[in-house]
């Protein structure tokens, strides 16, 4: 049992967060605290603001109202050292976003060499370690365009891990994959979760959510509708909107 004050362990504190795209109110009064080592799955219909929410965490998106504290640093309007926070927060994108002009190994070592100022040899050793962990060390000298989608996404995960992040964000990591490749990516994510990485995953993979999530959050229309542990969330959803959503995605 953890005896320390719970709020001390919160690596992400989101308080009354509001965001607008022009006139469109995309996030409404979001409150969410994430503890160190906690695995959170965010689901919801498209346009519900779930991607926007996690993109606020590493400030790919700015917000207009409320507060957001990541790793003890408050995200304010004219934040000075945004790169320092981004180093602590890894992100995996729906479309992988690997750098097509660099080899797999160069994709992985770019951040450690240029941002963390590691030597090339050190960075490559770490990169190979993570490539082995995602089970594609033999692809190190190929270019992203030569890999399958599932392999590219595993490289993208390894690229984030090379920066030794405290928090990992996953923005629909399996949505752009062919069905037969989804499980190889989810396997890597499950392993990562079991090692105690703090994770926020936007995904519709409910099997993954049941297996690893500490908490499942359902969002709709820019609000958090319901959050609970997976057993309660799937077995006994409280809100009728949640029930409708679950019946739609679990129906077939």
């Amino acid at each position: 049992m953890k005896t320390t004050d719970a709020s001390q362990n919160d690596v992400i504190k989101i308080n009354d967060l509001n965001k607008w795209y022009g006139d469109f109110h995309v996030l409404k009064d979001i409150n969410l605290n994430v503890k160190e080592g906690e695995r959170i799955v965010v689901c919801g219909p498209s346009g519900s603001g779930k991607s926007t929410l996690i993109r606020c965490v590493n400030r790919l998106e700015e917000f207009q109202k409320g507060s957001l504290i990541v790793n003890g640093v408050e995200m304010i309007e004219d934040i000075k050292n945004i790169e320092a926070i981004r180093r602590e927060v890894g992100m995996v994108f729906q479309h992988f976003n690997l750098f097509p002009h660099l080899t797999i190994l160069e994709n992985l070592t770019l951040g450690p060499i240029w941002v963390q100022k590691q030597s090339k040899a050190d960075a490559e050793a770490v990169a190979m370690k993570y490539l082995e962990r995602v089970k594609i060390p033999e692809q190190a000298h190929k270019f992203p365009g030569q890999l399958s989608g599932g392999q590219q996404q595993r490289v993208a995960i390894a690229r984030s891990l090379c920066m030794n992040p405290k928090i990992m964000l996953f923005d629909e990591p399996t949505s752009a994959l062919d069905p037969e490749m989804i499980s190889e990516v989810l396997d890597v994510m499950v392993e990562l979760a079991e090692e105690g990485m703090t994770m926020i995953c936007v995904t519709h993979e409910m099997g993954f959510a049941k297996k690893v999530a500490d908490r499942v959050i359902f969002m709709d229309a820019g609000q958090i509708v319901e959050q609970n542990n997976p057993t309660e969330f799937f077995g006994n959803p409280q809100n009728e909107r949640t029930q409708l959503f679950l019946s739609q995605i679990l129906a077939h």
Binding site: R86, R87, H95, F99, S160
Partner: peptide, 14 residues
Amino acid sequence: PKGQYEAADAIGLG
């Protein structure tokens, strides 16, 4: 693609 900028930002490149 915009994703290239975002990936570079997410790594912490200036």
